[in-house]
Design a protein around this nucleic acid. Structure first.
Length: 319
DNA sequence: AAGGCGGTCAACCGCCGGGAT
DNA sequence: CATCCCGGCGGTTGACCGCCT
């Protein structure tokens, strides 16, 4: 059964908001709060859909929003988080005080993904494009795979033994200690305007199979790795929030991730892990890692990856 | 000067999950 | 338990703007 439209489209104005409409919406929300958005247009005297009002408020009118350009630190953080979380824009935006998911998504699509490509990094997988091409070439000369899944998802599974590149994302932002970091699974590329693409100059290489061990302990190790990275992110968030602690307060989404305060990093990590436990993603990861067919490129348990927890990040690049 | 073209970003659309009934 | 309603999310669209030819 299809859902009825959220509002009467015949009597609803669409398109750009006028200053008068903005003023009405602001006046209403400042005195009554947001509450039930479906009632807001009527009560505020607007011929708009409730969803449109909510979007206009959260993306443009909400207090403490930043409208200036993204900083280098914000760029680094977006790339880092995208490598770990994929296109979970709301989660990423939660770590950027004053930025909305729409802001981050637009900035990624229009600027950052291009910068990464110019640097020879594939923005989807965060891997060197040259390595991906090499892998595609290697796949082309493989014998036919038996019994691939009907939806063809196996074709998108990462090839084994891909070298992973760890460009410097953290040091500039003061995120990492100078000591060598333990091996990580994702490729983090600091996006600098004219920096040359030089994935091969990083001596540190990991084999994909090194990460994809075949027991649950490996899954736990992977989770610990991710946790470590999120701790770094949380630290940035804490620092960024030092001067604008209220900015992110209204941005918590359905996962209930609330960060801030002295233990903001830990809270964020716990919230992410809890969220993925609730959604069963951690279980899914464990199942995937335990499934030998996964490594053979013909996983029977692979499922649609978009929007699923860790899928999309470097850990499970099934995009 | 004008038209084409590409980049940017606000806004819309459809889907999904969760709470209420 | 089923259904409805609402808010949230990610993907996509289209208007606007500046640059180039």
């Amino acid at each position: 059964m299809g859902r009825p439209p959220c509002c009467d489209k015949a009597n609803v104005k669409k398109g750009p908001w006028t200053p008068e409409e903005d003023a009405k919406l602001l006046a209403y929300t400042s005195t009554h709060g947001t509450g039930n958005w479906t009632n807001v247009p009527q009560r505020a005297g607007l011929k708009r859909c409730g969803k449109s009002c909510r979007l206009r408020y959260t993306n443009y009118l909400r207090p403490n929003l930043k409208h200036e350009n993204f900083t280098q630190e914000e760029e680094d953080l977006i790339v880092t988080l995208h490598a770990m979380l994929g296109s979970r824009w709301s989660l990423i935006a939660n770590q950027l005080p004053g930025r909305t998911d729409n802001d981050v998504k637009n900035y990624w699509n229009t600027k950052l993904s291009k910068k990464l490509r110019q640097r020879g990094i594939d923005p989807l997988t965060h891997r060197p494009i040259a390595d991906l091409m090499h892998s595609i070439g290697a796949l082309a000369i493989r014998p036919p795979q038996p019994a691939t899944s009907p939806n063809g998802s196996a074709a998108y599974l990462p090839a084994p033994a891909l070298p992973l590149v760890h460009d410097v994302a953290y040091h500039a932002a003061g995120m990492l200690p100078p000591t060598p970091a333990p091996p990580r699974q994702v490729v983090i590329a600091r996006v600098e305007a004219d920096a040359p693409a030089s994935p091969t100059e990083h001596g540190h290489e990991l084999k994909w199979s090194d990460f994809l061990a075949d027991d649950a302990a490996a899954a736990a190790a992977a989770a610990a790795e991710a946790q470590q990275q999120l701790a770094v992110v949380g630290q940035y968030h804490h620092e960024a929030n030092a001067g604008s602690s209220s900015a992110a307060a209204g941005g918590n989404d359905g996962c209930g991730i609330a960060v801030g305060g002295d233990d903001g990093a830990a809270a964020f990590i716990d919230a992410i892990l809890d969220c993925d436990k609730e959604t069963g993603v951690d279980q899914l990861i464990a199942e995937l890692l335990a499934d030998p067919a996964y490594y053979a490129g013909s996983s029977s348990s692979s499922s649609s990856s978009s929007g699923m927890g860790w899928a999309g990040m470097g850990l499970l690049n099934a995009d």
